[in-house]
């Protein structure tokens, strides 16, 4: 019995990290109505940044967290100007194609540098044992960091001037421009934030599981599932959605082969789209 509970708790811990990834996706959608199909590739950048920090620079693995936030933010701003700015306000297909192209470029570059073989960065953290079950230290740390970063995002969006400007632009871009907000700069910044969130979730995932250059797709798909659970464009819902997905994975794992997990997840995805098109945890945007 406790075995299932342990699996569920572990699922929730990992789910918080999924939630963080989805926040990046949903923030970008909420502010500029762009579905960022480079999301998975950015998660992979976060993973390999951990590898570089540990093996090339010999630093402590958790140095990669702040490093990825800063790098992701700047990289996101650059990406915005290269690939997103011109398709803002155009048909959604345009931004899908353009971010998908970025995805292909990044994956191609990654494959050239690191091939597609698996990488693993062992991170040692003390574990907690209860009733003969072990809760891995890295899982607990990753979940705590995900929640802390989500909390910081909340503080930024609700308690700082620039964060409020991001919400104003999300709410009504033309009005924001009229009140003196440089909305183009705000869009670039919001894209940077979304990329930083996706990247740092990748870094956290890489402290938990092995990864390859191609791992991004699976996590991008998980982000989509989380996003429909949480309501597209709703960062707080994304964290809850992530936890819910983790919980479902944790519940399912003891009872079925791993290959069945995606079937459950995407069954849920389709079910949510049909039954709760605004998301189960969506409180805003009535």
């Amino acid at each position: 019995m406790f075995g299932i509970l342990a699996s569920v708790i572990d699922g929730i811990l990992v789910g918080a990290v999924y939630g963080l990834a989805a926040m990046g996706l949903t923030l970008i959608w909420g502010v500029m109505n762009v579905i960022n199909l480079a999301h998975g590739a950015i998660i992979v950048i976060g993973m390999f940044l951990l590898y570089i920090i540990v093996y090339s620079l010999g630093l402590h693995p958790y140095v990669a967290i702040p490093a990825m936030i800063v790098f992701g933010f700047l990289f996101g701003i650059v990406l915005y100007w290269i690939a997103v700015h011109r398709v803002i306000g155009q048909a959604e297909l345009m931004s899908l194609l353009s971010t998908f192209a970025v995805n292909m470029v990044l994956i191609g570059l990654g494959t050239a540098v690191w091939s597609t073989s698996p990488y693993n960065v062992p991170v040692s953290m003390p574990s907690i044992s209860l009733h003969g079950y072990t809760f891995t230290g890295t899982h607990i740390t990753a979940a705590i960091m995900a929640v802390v970063i989500a909390g910081l995002l909340y503080v930024l969006l609700y308690h700082t001037r620039i964060g409020k400007a991001v919400r104003a632009v999300a709410n009504n871009r033309e009005a924001a421009e009229l009140t003196g907000i440089p909305t183009t700069q705000v869009l670039a910044m919001a894209f940077g934030l979304g990329v930083a969130l996706a990247g740092v979730s990748g870094t956290l995932i890489a402290t938990l599981f092995p990864f390859t250059v191609l791992s991004g797709d699976a996590y991008q798909l998980k982000s989509f599932v989380v996003t429909v659970l949480g309501g597209l464009g709703n960062p707080a819902g994304a964290l809850l959605g992530g936890v819910a997905l983790g919980l479902i994975e944790g519940l399912a794992t003891p009872f079925m082969p791993v290959s069945w997990i995606p079937v459950v997840e995407f069954g849920l995805f389709v079910f949510c789209l049909i039954a709760f098109p605004r998301g189960i945890f969506s409180f805003t945007k009535a």
Binding site: K164, R167, A168, A175, A176, I181, T284, K285
Partner: peptide, 14 residues
Amino acid sequence: QLFSDMTVEENLEM
């Protein structure tokens, strides 16, 4: 064209 999801105070601040 208000910021409908934001409070009165936030609208004024913007």
